[in-house]
Nucleic acid binder design. Structure first.
Lengths: 167, 167
DNA sequence: TTTTTTGCAAAACCTTTGCAGTTGG
DNA sequence: CCAACTGCAAAGGTTTTGCAAAAAA
């Protein structure tokens, strides 16, 4: 128990707060960055860099993917954004102010369940007790089989044919 | 509830057993496949397709990556092999007979801890109770901060600079 | 004006696909 | 002999890098 820090405020409630943070860090706040932030603030779930680029294209020239990745990188450094890998596809980016949601992903039907971090606190506590390990399901989800799929066939090996999902 | 299969024995203790399984499934057992299996049986931790290819190259012509991927795919179908994603790098392949190990990966120092599945049973039980979800840490690890890194800096956002690891 | 940002082109990286030639049974 | 397997070349999808032009402060 060396520390007591517990996720600093870092709210970033709106785009202007992010703009300030960007400038405070010696950066600039361009129209381009505003577009990316608008896409992020508009999204209700984490989205890919490509989808962000597409969103920016709706009202004008679509931003280049490179630019989007670079902006997201900067925003992650500032703690505004975080990305999660929910499967084999592209990383998905979301605002940290959205509570740092954690995820359950079903191996069988690929369904994604977003949880409030508090819901996983008992699990986290157990893992901490047993392994001295502070678990987080924000970057990689908790993977397994949802109730529906668990009854389908066992989670063991040889889980392939006839299920239409490949990992 | 269409099926009731419950993880058949499927030991695959040695290469010959796999050879039989391959032939039983209408496939063939080539020298190439033997090389891949030798690399897998020799490894003491999951390894990438590329490292398998490299291993086969030691005593002759290095196998093509394509071939290795195709063989691994076949072996996964048979339940001989399984792959895990421990980070942003390539998938890592290992024998299922190695107990279907599950993993803890530290976000701070990138250390990997292999666990016996039984060690995670209490965690699994808790997750099952709370969410009706059958968790598995064989495909994606349990990610977080190890004891050493947890005292380092909080798991919140803004976790970057000075740590030499990027995710 | 100075420094940061941007877009384009290109490449890196991991993995898959198509196809013609080879090989196991 | 024939189906299964292999290697090569190419492509697919995601992300990064280099560089010159454009824009913020």
């Amino acid at each position: 128990m060396t520390r007591s820090v517990n996720t600093p405020p870092l709210q970033f409630r709106d785009i202007d707060e992010v703009a300030d943070a960007l400038r405070d860090a010696g950066g600039r706040f361009s129209a381009t960055r505003r577009l990316v932030l608008e896409a992020l603030f508009a999204a209700d779930a984490p989205i890919s860099a490509d989808r962000i680029a597409a969103a920016t294209g709706e009202g004008g020239a679509r931003l280049d993917a490179t630019t989007v990745y670079r902006i997201l990188e900067r925003l992650e450094e500032l703690g505004v954004v975080r990305h999660v890998h929910l499967g084999h596809g592209p990383g998905l980016y979301g605002l940290t102010r959205d509570g740092g949601r954690e995820y359950l992903v079903c191996d069988g039907c690929d369904s994604v369940t977003a949880l409030d971090p508090a819901q996983l606190d008992p699990v986290r506590a157990l893992v901490r007790e047993q392994f001295g390990f502070e678990a987080s399901f924000t970057h990689f989800p908790l993977v397994g089989r949802c109730a529906a799929c668990a009854g389908d066939h066992a989670p063991g090996p040889a889980a392939s044919a006839g299920h239409g999902h490949a990992h």
